[in-house]
C-alpha cells in the first residue's frame, strides 16, 4: 500500500493540481491554443502552396517543394524550434524590437507543420481522377481555375481526417516552444505544469497539463473519426432505375 500511496502522492496531489489550475486556464490554455491555431492556419496555407508546387509542371517549383519537405520533415521538432528560435530570434529582435520568442515558436511550428500538411494535400489532390481536370478544362476553364474550383476542393475533402490528425500533433508539439525560454505570461500548458512540478517537487503539475492536453486532443480525435465515417458512408449509393430514359429521345431509330 505504501507504493500506491507514494504514486498517488506523486501524481495526484490535489493541492498542487488545485494551485496550478487557475494559471492553466488563464495563461496555459490560451497560449497553447494560440500557438497551435496560428501555426495551424499558417501551416495549412503554406502547405497548400507546397502541395501545388509539388504537383506543378515547373521542375524548379517541384524541386524546391521536395527539398523543403525533406528537410522539415526529417528534423526533430525540438531541433527545428531551437535552431529557428535561437538562430533567427536575435535578428528578428534587432529588426523589430520584439524580444519575445513566442513569434519564433509560431514560425518554427508553422514551417514544420507546412511540410507535413503539404504532403497531405499533395496526396489528396493527386488522388483525384484525371478526368476531373480534363472535364473542367473541356468546359473552357484554364488550368489554375480548374484546380481551384474542381480538383483541389475534392482532394482536400479526402484528406480532412489526416489534416485534423496533423492539428492534433501540432497541439502536442506546441509544448516544445518552452525550450526557447518563455516569459511568464507566454507560458503554455506544458511549461506551467513543469514550473509547478519544479516548485512543488511533485509531478502533479504535469498531470494537470496532461488533462488539459487530452481535453483538447480527444474531442479532435473523435471529430476525425466522425469526418472519416461521413466521408465513407455519408453519401449512400442510391441508384434508381432509368425510368426517364424511355421518355427522352423518342423517335430516334437506334
Amino acid at each position: 500500500m505504501d507504493y500506491l500511496n507514494q504514486l498517488a502522492e506523486t501524481f495526484l496531489n490535489w493541492k498542487v493540481i488545485g494551485e496550478v489550475l487557475p494559471s492553466m486556464f488563464a495563461v496555459g490554455l490560451p497560449n497553447t491554443i494560440v500557438l497551435a491555431a496560428i501555426s495551424g492556419v499558417i501551416g495549412t496555407l503554406l502547405g497548400m502552396v507546397l502541395a501545388l508546387m509539388g504537383i506543378s509542371r515547373n521542375p524548379v517549383a517541384r524541386w524546391a517543394a521536395r527539398v523543403y519537405t525533406d528537410v522539415f520533415r526529417g528534423l526533430p521538432a525540438v531541433l527545428t524550434i531551437l535552431v529557428i528560435g535561437l538562430g533567427f530570434g536575435p535578428i528578428v529582435r534587432e529588426l523589430t524590437g520584439i524580444s519575445s520568442p513566442y513569434p519564433m515558436g509560431i514560425a518554427a511550428l508553422s514551417l514544420m507543420s507546412a511540410a507535413y500538411i503539404g504532403e497531405i494535400f499533395r496526396s489528396g489532390i493527386q488522388s483525384v481522377d484525371k478526368g476531373q481536370l480534363e472535364a473542367t478544362r473541356a468546359l473552357g476553364f484554364g488550368y489554375g481555375a480548374s484546380m481551384r474550383l474542381v480538383v483541389v476542393p475534392q482532394g482536400v475533402r479526402r484528406v480532412l481526417p489526416a489534416l485534423v490528425n496533423q492539428f492534433i500533433a501540432l497541439i502536442k508539439e506546441s509544448s516544445l516552444v518552452f525550450t526557447l525560454g518563455l516569459m511568464s505570461s507566454e507560458r503554455e500548458l506544458f511549461q506551467i505544469g513543469q514550473d509547478a512540478a519544479a516548485r512543488s517537487g511533485n509531478l502533479s503539475g504535469y498531470v494537470a497539463a496532461a488533462i488539459f492536453y487530452l481535453a483538447l486532443t480527444i474531442p479532435l480525435t473523435h471529430f476525425v473519426n466522425w469526418i472519416d465515417r461521413r466521408l465513407r458512408s455519408g453519401r449512400p449509393e442510391k441508384k434508381e432505375p432509368d425510368e426517364v430514359a424511355a421518355v427522352v429521345g423518342k423517335g430516334a431509330h437506334v
Binding site: V244, A245, V248, G249, G251, H253, V254
Partner: peptide, 15 residues
C-alpha cells in the same frame, strides 16, 4: 440497359 437512353438523346441532338 442504359445505353439506349443516352444514344436516343444523342440521336435527338443530331436531328
Amino acid at each position: 440497359e442504359l445505353v439506349k437512353g443516352v444514344l436516343a438523346l444523342m440521336a435527338d441532338l443530331a436531328k
